[in-house]
Amino acid sequence: MNLFRLFGDLSHLASIIILLQKIRSTRSCRGISFKTQALYATVFITRYLDLFYDWVSLYNFTMKVFFIASSCYILYLMRYKYRPTHDPSIDTFRVEYLLGPSAVLALLFHYRFTVPEVFWSFSIFLEAVAILPQLFMLQRTGEAETITTHYLAALGAYRALYIPNWIYRYFTEDMVDPIAVTAGIVQTALYLDFFYVYFTKVLQGQKFELPA
């Protein structure tokens, strides 16, 4: 464990807490893509199959349980408790374009050809693109509530922090995880446009608005 990874994980944790706070304080899931949230739940469930047979650490175990539980809870909130506040007509990204290629890539690239390892690869590829329905929705509406942008910024920061973590691990542990690194770089790159607007507008106290 190094500080990049620790702060990355804490940023991931913070993003979920901000999302829950957004839903609670506005009593609405407006502006949040149900599809992206469903993809994240899929990512965590398929990645953490090892929860049942592989013990890494109490930290690792607790985080995994939290990510699975919170992502399912968010789906429950969106699907049932705040259902009327979700507008499916703007959440129109075709998730099969993400699920299909992720499955194909997982069959082609994995560390061992076993069910948990292929699912693990699938989750890595899927996580890389799971934010796309959310970003697509943002693009369509052209604006976002400030708290929603904080959620996305924390999520993007988590991904960005994993990159120095891999560089650090390469030099200190001689550890390289080519699947996670490749997918992670793609995933972080997807946030660049968002980060540009976040830094130049939201952090300057303006509303998040995309040029028409």
Partner: peptide, 10 residues
């Protein structure tokens, strides 16, 4: 996993 990259990251 034996001989492969350990999945110790989240």
């Amino acid at each position: 996993g034996s001989g492969t990259v350990p999945h110790d990251e989240l």
